[in-house]
Design a protein around this nucleic acid. Structure first.
Lengths: 227, 227
DNA sequence: CCAAAAGTGTTCTCACTACACCCATGT
DNA sequence: ACATGGGTGTAGTGAGAACACTTTTGG
């Protein structure tokens, strides 16, 4: 035990890039800082990892810290969120308070599930803003946000599960296509996108559910992600 | 400054999964621990991040710590190494000395460039071992190694730069094919692999250099990665 | 009827596969 | 001569792009 103490120690934090799609725009959740440093500026939700207390006396895991901060700061139903570690940011001067290393997380939530946060949208201290055009951010949070967006865009094709957390649990093919188009900032041919989607049905990853959904045109078939 | 100190702090370490191909096998570099805990056991090279001293008084970045540890523990020419952050491991009890969070790195070196390490291969305390069949490892290093191998195999196709760090600077198509076959644990049709490779030449990522290389059969054309 | 969005069909291209074959070198 | 690996040619398959078309709803 003693050996560890020969080394100076940093503080360790988690910062969470919470993304959703609102009003056809990819948005990120920000919190206005109430204390120094960067008081009054916008920042990603996050906080320090607890490294003592709890069952083991050694605190919580990084994932647990991310989930806890998310719950405390955003009122999200954390169990419904896609949460994934991104990268550790450790530039020596990234925090004016001293040496703080931050482990960044990506959280992806669907519009239907952020009810509690939506309520806070009007609040002065919590706000959804366009992810590609955020206000000035505290610390190195611009870098973290850019990393998260790059990650999301790279991963979207490879792992469709992430995209499914941005749509309602029961979705139409058009719903999913709009998510892809907004994130990738392109358009997809609806016939070709449909065929790609239907392959996932063949593979058993998605199943059709009964009923239809009104759309403004012909009603659409409804699908659901298979657990 | 004071605010930071309200929170207990963990120690923060870097651990590096150094991979190369020797004798047609993917191998990882291990170090035998000379001190407790896990004294006498094999472990990944690594150590604590310096968070004081240096120019800023705040210590070194995570990347710098990884490079420094790599240099100190392996004698590698660190400038020639592909180094990439993988993941932060922060389970509360992963280190018996107390709360230690480790940021894992992947380092990829080519056989032609590990001269100094090769010398140490016979040493009692530094050894290359098959990456898919390592001895018992200290801490959560089995998990870190598995993560690194998964990462390497997933990334290999998407970013050919990584593979190029496993071959000599001047290489034949066959050299690269053998690297892919060893890592992916399959075989590739040589004609088809060749065409895939030649597309990289068309794209300007690789260029042909003068001369040929003896191979045991017909001599092979020599290529080089364009900086 | 018309707009809007779902859903179908057809064609082209391109990459990856498999496999047969030719070429240049060492022994 | 023959084994060995580099290098070439070709036909098949499957995914994606492009685009014209039909279907079903709401207004």
């Amino acid at each position: 035990m003693a050996r560890t103490y020969r080394y100076a120690r940093p503080s360790i934090a988690v910062d969470i890039v919470v993304l959703t799609i609102r009003h056809e725009v990819l948005q990120v959740l920000l919190i206005r800082r109430g204390i120094e440093p960067f008081k009054g500026k916008w920042a990603l939700p996050g906080g320090f990892v607890r490294v003592e207390g709890g069952r083991s006396g050694l605190g919580e895991s990084l994932d647990a810290a991310a989930r806890r901060e998310l719950r405390e700061e955003t009122n999200l139903d954390v169990d419904e969120v896609w949460l994934e570690q991104l990268h550790a940011f450790g530039a020596p001067a990234r925090d004016p308070r001293g040496r703080v290393i931050s482990v960044a997380y990506l959280a992806v939530v669907s519009p239907e599930r952020f009810g509690q946060v939506a309520a806070a949208t009007d609040a002065d201290d919590t706000r959804w803003v366009p992810a590609d055009d955020p206000p000035a951010l505290a610390f190195d949070h611009p870098e973290i946000l850019a990393f998260a967006l790059g990650h999301l865009r790279r991963r979207l094709d490879q792992d469709p599960r992430m995209a499914f957390h941005l749509v309602p649990r029961e979705l139409t093919i058009g719903d999913l296509r709009r998510v892809y188009e907004i994130i990738e900032r392109t358009t997809y041919d609806k016939a070709n996108f449909r065929r790609r989607f239907l392959r996932l049905v063949d593979e058993g990853k998605i199943e059709r559910v009964a009923g239809q959904q009104a759309t403004g045109g012909r009603p659409a078939a409804v699908y659901r992600l298979v657990e």
